[in-house]
Amino acid sequence: MIRPLVARLAQMLFVMAGISVITFAIFFATPGSDPSARIAGRNATPETLAAVRLSFGLDQPLPVQYGLLMQRLFITQDLTSFMNRGEKVVPQIVAATPVTLSLVAGAALLWVAGAGLFGVLAALRPGRALDRGLMLLGLVGVSMPVYWLGAVVNLVTQSRFHDSWLFSWVPPLGYIAFADDPWGWFKVLVLPSFTLAVFYIGLYSRVLRSALIEANQQDYIRTARAKGLSERRVLLAHALRTSLVSVVTLFGLDFGALVGGGALLTEVVFGLPGIGKLTYDALQALDLPVIMATVMYASFFVVAANALVDMLYAFIDPRVRDA
């Protein structure tokens, strides 16, 4: 029981180290241009360039530079932006985190409910019109660029039909903190969460349906039917429970990935100042210290979340637990 956990943790640390080396190499060791010019941003003065060189130790060997960057990112946390002079990067990320978490949590709630409903409905009568329709709808959902869907939602709710009774409640784009106004926080997050959830509703309802149909052919389901249980009870109490195991793993991975950067496009379209928006603004300004920091923190979060899911999985699934 303990051995696999330790092994998984060791693997997590290895992957984190690997990611940090790759990120460092991309930003500091790509041939072709001077990293100090890249970090300082557009139209930097010679003084800024000199400051960058000193601050990142660019005159020292690469391993020292790597160590210095890691130290400033994670230990002293005093990495500063050269575009917005003196603005510390790490506190910005910390401040943006609740926004992203709110958005992703809302979306997760919607997609679990939506996918559960659609997946079960489709699996009730495989091959029938309802099943085919829902599955096609799911495929459409996974085929749309999320930022475009967000633009369509904005067009309908902010402009074309904003004055109708249906969408007059929609607040202007932006974010309201939960502590300031819980009801406003809720209203501001409904549509972005829905937009973000559409892709996952499509994906998960398809996954759940396949898992249910596969479970339906297992022996224990035949046993349950033979006991004379109602079809509904067989589906909901027996088939759904086993099917959930695969969905739960997927859910953990996707939730982690969304918090760590996947929600970027949605945040940009709806003007939500989360980690993704922070990255986007830094991209527009070519503010590399901010990008480096968000990339590093977000991917570490994703890797840690994945490791956690794997370990939880061992507790959920007795087949893995006892192996």
Binding site: Q11, F14, V15, G18, I19, I22, T23, I26, F27, T30, R38, A257, G260, G261, G262, L264, T279, L283, L286, L288, I291, M292, T294, V295, A298, S299, V302, V303, N306
Partner: peptide, 18 residues
Amino acid sequence: DVLWAFPVYLLAISLSIV
């Protein structure tokens, strides 16, 4: 493993911005 665990958009963004 490392590439797999690297979030797709973040890796693409890092490569692209440089």
